[in-house]
Design a protein around this nucleic acid. Structure first.
Length: 274
DNA sequence: CTTGGTTCCTGCGTGC
DNA sequence: TGCACGCAGGAACCAA
């Protein structure tokens, strides 16, 4: 389940490999993954294009192209991107292939096929609602304590639901939300506007820290995630609560619990998180 | 405006 | 051992 740290890890690995490369051909094995424009235009507009650089916004990967267009890929749950030689056998779940001009291919593989690929011009960007309406990301200037405090104070819903909502904060998913709340010592079902100034500050610092750690560890491989080189991340070894149901809290030894919160499997320490 | 439920999708873990 | 079942969850969409 790629979140900001996983997608950033992929971006860092793939950018030096694809930047400056020309897409010589596109192969579509599963047309419904192409959400915009139609499949024929998608292929025609991409063929012959040069990739300038690979960027990221939240959980989106953005391939900036020479004609000003952007190839926008969201991996959702199980999407993977591989940069491999044409001689290497393709993963059985490979659905889209971008053939490059150097004997290598950029391969999009996806087990659950929930990922999306779109090709847009600059002026068509607002069409991509999730990308266009995304809030500031952790570790950026726009995501400062003032923004976060005001956000928390004016929202009545559960703090976990708020942290998951990409319109307010871009890039957090289920794993890093649970980890942030654990590090801050805040119960996931607390209402956002019930947090006092100290708790808001702790949560703000925790979000930035877990995202930073996640990137430094090359992402979390809980189930399906692998990086741009097909390797697992290392952050799963550092998880505080996520996926640790019935295991002891690393701080106090209390058994980690799992409940559904905001429609998501949610892990927390009932002793440390109030 | 908000929030909660449904849908998409398939490999895999669980239990009988 | 084999099989049925339900879970995993990001985001669009709809209803209340």
């Amino acid at each position: 389940m790629p979140e900001l740290p996983e997608v950033e890890t992929i971006r860092r690995q793939l950018d030096p490999k694809v930047a400056g490369r020309k897409i010589s051909a596109v192969e579509i094995g599963l047309p419904r993954l192409i959400k915009y424009p139609d499949v024929e235009s998608f292929c025609r507009l991409l063929e012959g294009q040069t990739i300038l650089q690979l960027e990221r916004r939240g959980k989106y990967l953005l391939f900036r192209l020479a004609d000003g267009r952007m190839l926008v890929i969201h991996l959702r749950m199980t999407g993977r991107l591989y940069y491999q030689s044409i001689d290497e056998p393709r993963d059985k779940f490979t659905h889209i292939v971008f053939k490059l001009d150097n004997g290598f291919e950029l391969r999009y593989a996806d087990i659950r096929t929930l990922g999306t690929l779109e090709l847009v011009t600059e002026s068509e960007l607002p069409r991509l609602k999730g990308l266009h309406g995304m809030g500031p990301e952790p570790l950026t200037e726009a995501f400062d304590l003032i923004y976060f405090s005001e956000l928390m104070s004016k929202r009545k819903g559960k703090v976990k639901a708020l942290l998951l909502d990409q319109r307010w904060i871009g890039g957090l998913g289920n794993i890093y939300v649970d980890e942030s709340l654990a590090l801050a010592g805040i119960h996931p079902e607390r209402l956002a506007n019930s947090l006092n100034a100290d708790e808001v500050s702790r949560l703000y610092e925790a979000i930035n820290r877990v995202i930073k750690e996640g990137i430094e560890h090359g992402g979390t491989s809980f189930r399906d995630y692998v990086d741009g080189e097909g390797k697992a991340g290392q952050h799963q070894q550092h998880l505080r609560v996520y996926g640790r149901k019935k295991q002891p809290c690393r701080i106090c030894g209390t058994t980690i619990e799992r409940h559904e919160v905001a429609g998501r499997g949610t892990y927390y320490c009932p002793h440390c998180q109030k």
